[in-house]
């Protein structure tokens, strides 16, 4: 009898521990340390080391963003200052605190970098760095780096051809190697240092501009050819400013590993 009680107690303890761990981790996964060569034009094509970090499994949804706005009035559509968000901020919402007919489980879009950053800070997190995002996004279901796989690239390019994917619920695309959903397939996402790529106006040294990203020359390079999809993302990011918002641009948060 005594032994049985003890067993039950441990079972309960284990159960509680499991539940609490799960509650903390359901929404984030660990992305392990590693290195990769990003697409953008570092002349030496140097590899970048990414320290381990955690990332949200899903992009932030309309529902989640609504609960943030309930707390943070200054980020509501009618109140937010123009320097922090342009006129199209949350323009598809019905009003300040109502996303109307839109899918609550779909990613929130038409959010500015400032708003996305604030949301993550509010959650005790941060926006992922561009290199972190790309590192996590280059995985398919089985490989950390699937960029040379034909199917991986075809899937992404297939998505680019689909319309209005932004109103689909999160979590319905394939789960990648790290356990992340929707890195491709629904929306594009903000990164903390989105403004670290160059379209023009940069002339530290001419050869250092990422000009090869933006002309036909880029596709001559084999790794770039494999990764046309990434090229699209980099080109898109370089066109952004921090208060811009767009119907196909959302975000998810990350955090350091403590």
């Amino acid at each position: 009898m005594y032994k049985g009680d003890k067993k039950a107690f441990f079972l309960l303890l284990f159960f509680l521990l499991f539940v609490s761990l799960n509650a903390q981790n359901t929404k984030m996964v660990l992305i392990k340390k590693g290195s990769f060569v990003p697409l953008y034009g570092d002349v030496n094509k140097k590899s970048v080391t990414i320290d381990a970090f955690k990332m949200d499994i899903y992009p932030v949804t309309n529902e989640e963003y609504l609960s943030f706005l309930k707390e943070k009035a200054s980020y509501r559509r009618s109140v937010i200052k123009r320097i922090f968000a342009d006129i199209s901020y949350l323009e598809y919402w019905k009003n300040d605190l109502d996303y109307g007919e839109n899918n609550g489980k779909a990613p929130v879009t038409n959010v500015s970098w400032f708003a996305a950053k604030k949301y993550c800070e509010y959650k005790g997190k941060r926006l992922p760095a561009l290199d972190e995002w790309e590192y996590a996004a280059m995985a398919d279901q089985k490989h950390r780096d699937a960029r040379t796989k034909v199917a991986y690239n075809n899937d992404i390019l297939g998505w680019y051809e689909k319309r209005n994917t932004f109103n689909r619920s999160v979590g319905q695309t394939c789960k990648n190697y790290w356990g992340l959903y929707d890195m491709h397939g629904l929306i594009w996402e903000w990164t903390f240092d989105f403004n670290s790529i160059f379209l023009s106006g940069e002339s530290r040294k001419d050869r250092n501009t990422d000009v090869s990203l933006f002309c036909g020359g880029a596709s001559v390079n084999a790794t770039d050819l494999m990764n046309y999809a990434a090229f699209m993302r980099y080109a898109f990011r370089s066109s952004l400013k921090a208060n811009y918002s767009s119907r196909n641009l959302g975000f998810r948060c990350a955090c350091d590993v403590k």
Binding site: F194, N195, S196, F198, E202, R204, N208, K241
Partner: peptide, 23 residues
């Protein structure tokens, strides 16, 4: 980074003391 984002200035660290940046 935030201030640069407001100015539309892009920059990236490319070596320990070397950056590329918008002029």
């Amino acid at each position: 980074r935030e201030f640069a984002a407001v100015l539309g200035v892009n920059y990236k660290k490319i070596a320990p003391i070397d950056f590329s940046h918008s002029n």
